[in-house]
Amino acid sequence: MSDFLSVFLAVVLALLVAPMLQKNTDTVWANLRQITFVKKNGVLVSTYLLGAVFIWVGLMIVAPQLYMVDFSFRDGAIGGDPEAYTLKNYSYLIFGRDSDENLFNLLHLQIFLKTILASVGVTLLAFLLCYPIAYYLAQSTKGGTTRLFLIALILPFWVNEILRAFAFRILFGSSGVINVVLMGMGILDEPIDFIKADIAMYAGLSYAYILLMVFPIYNAIESLDHNQIEAARDLGSPWWRIHYRVVIPYAKPGIASGCTMVFMLSAGALAVPQILGGPSSLWFTQIIYDWFFTGGDWSRGSAYAFVLLFSCIIFVLAVMKFFKVNLGELAK
């Protein structure tokens, strides 16, 4: 398997070194200096920048992912042939019922579908929670108050994710604050099992990525000229139409950016579903985790992880296409 990595590195090095070998090094340097990027930043800085970007993107992101792609097409099961390429890791997700290979793997497919749909739900919930906050901060508060609110939003995120998830467990537990209050007010006779019903998990996921939703939307709305809101109001518009016709179209790149991040991270979350999920329901990432660490089948784990990754990417691109958002706008 390490031969794969060596091939990868060999190709990269060949691309870098080959030109140097063909001509003498002086001409290579002279040519390099002609490149605008090198001219503008100097040899040292440009070497550093290119080197850093290469190490980050090439070595730390692309190479391991390619490694995993390679993994996912091999037979990693105990007793299997590790050198042979196969599609069975992927087909297992669809037809992987041990008793009969022709039946759908309903369990895993259901969990996969649930993960995607629930992530959409979490994203919508986070959007509904965050849009009013972002709008209020961006348009209705002034300097000092805005900073105070933003700090109040940021500070809880210094507490690590696992601790926050456990705090939610306490809040939503059968003798937790929420049940106690609801019962004390006489609304409930007996505690609701929020954890079994996955309510705690959805709440925890929505809360976990709230900042990633608030900030892009806040940034987008902040640059909206307040006069436009007043102009719409002056022309007779009720508040909801102002949002629908003026604010949301303007904030669309920010909303898209926030929703994409929350969706991707929710679908890929592990800690929160692990801690807050009900005992009988699994998140797709938990199955991946199990393949890697309990099942010991990295190949199958990789295959599952790629299915999740590509499904999410395709889903996001489709939604962006539907709402007419360009990929470039996400970085605005």
């Binding site: 007779g236 016709r245 303007y250």
Partner: peptide, 28 residues
């Protein structure tokens, strides 16, 4: 302001940049 028989023209005009000219005019 949305119920008064007045219309205001802002100093910076505050036209809606994401709408066409006709949609701007017809917004009311």
């Amino acid at each position: 302001p949305n119920k008064r028989p007045t219309a205001l023209i802002f100093q910076n005009l505050a036209l809606f940049p994401l709408m066409s000219v006709a949609d701007n005019i017809a917004f009311g």
